[in-house]
Design a binder for these strands. Structure first.
Lengths: 161, 161
DNA sequence: CGAATTTTGGTACGAAAGTATGAATCGCCT
DNA sequence: AGGCGATTCATACTTTCGTACCAAAATTCG
């Protein structure tokens, strides 16, 4: 508990610690250089130059640390075409509202394929008379006058695939 | 010509020039400080400290200049739903291949609406006989047997809106 | 079980669709 | 000028569609 608290503190202030340590090292280095070259007067320029190089390097390093999070985020909107948004889904609500019977709906699906009444009859094993009845009743419910309009409306209402 | 050449050189190396100038200014500053405080021996630490601060600042500035192009560009793809992806465009190639005449194409467009031959005739100011002719010829080109199949195929080939 | 609905099928008839054939007119191109 | 495709229209015929009216099973549901 207390350890994790201290650990957190250390983690958050590690940069400051690093700067402090680096500064201390440099100060010791400076003092050492001072003692070593203080004897010869001619070396004061070299001493100054070394200090300049050292602290320039330090400055660069410090700046690097400070600017590491200086990233600029550029968001580019890219248009992505989606194959078919909401095409697969059929309008269940509308389909229920129309109150079509199962057979009428089956006939409607075959109607869309362009089959004649006789062909539909063959596929459903029904007589042409029966198909005619279903078709006619369906037209009333869809409020259309012929099969082409029925298919057109079914497509528009998305009650068929 | 020569001027623009020199201008280009200057432009590309302006950072180096700036660094040089800054360095010269600092050297003069150092010499001035050296003359001013060299009299008193106790000021050598202050002198060193000032040099350290100056060059640290210089280092930070240099680093800033070097990392100015450190921007990270993040491209985010954003999905944009387009009203109707490829619906507006009709298949011109297929339409041309079918070799429909102008009248046949007009009839086809009205056929899709579920109009009867008589209604199409009224809208195009033509007799029912003419409409029948166009419709029948069109069926051959589309390779279909009735109007419902014609509309279905036209929709599938996207040769009509 | 009984009523309502759905499904199936039939007949009849008119309307519309579709096919086949022929023909006149028009615009365009060589 | 002649050829050609497109357009227009007509007639005749067959097929399909669509409606109306009816009715017997089958199914669903309270």
């Amino acid at each position: 508990m207390i350890f994790s608290f201290l650990k957190d503190i250390v983690h958050k202030t590690r940069h400051i610690f690093l700067y402090g340590v680096a500064m201390a090292v440099l100060v010791f280095l400076l003092k050492w250089l001072q003692w070593k070259y203080l004897i010869t007067d001619h070396s004061s320029d070299i001493y100054t130059g070394l200090i300049a190089i050292l602290f320039t390097t330090l400055g660069v390093w410090v700046a690097r640390q400070l600017t590491e999070t200086k990233n600029r985020t550029i968001i580019v909107e890219k248009e992505v075409y989606l194959s078919e948004p909401a095409d697969a889904g059929i309008n269940e609500a509308e389909l229920k509202r129309l109150n079509l019977t199962t057979r009428e709906y089956e006939v409607l699906q075959l109607l869309k394929q362009g089959y004649s009444n006789a062909e539909i009859g063959e596929r459903l094993f029904l007589s042409v008379s029966t198909i005619k009845t279903h078709v006619s009743n369906m037209f009333v419910k869809l409020d259309v006058k012929n099969r082409t309009q029925a298919v057109e409306k079914a497509n528009r209402l998305k009650i068929i695939r």
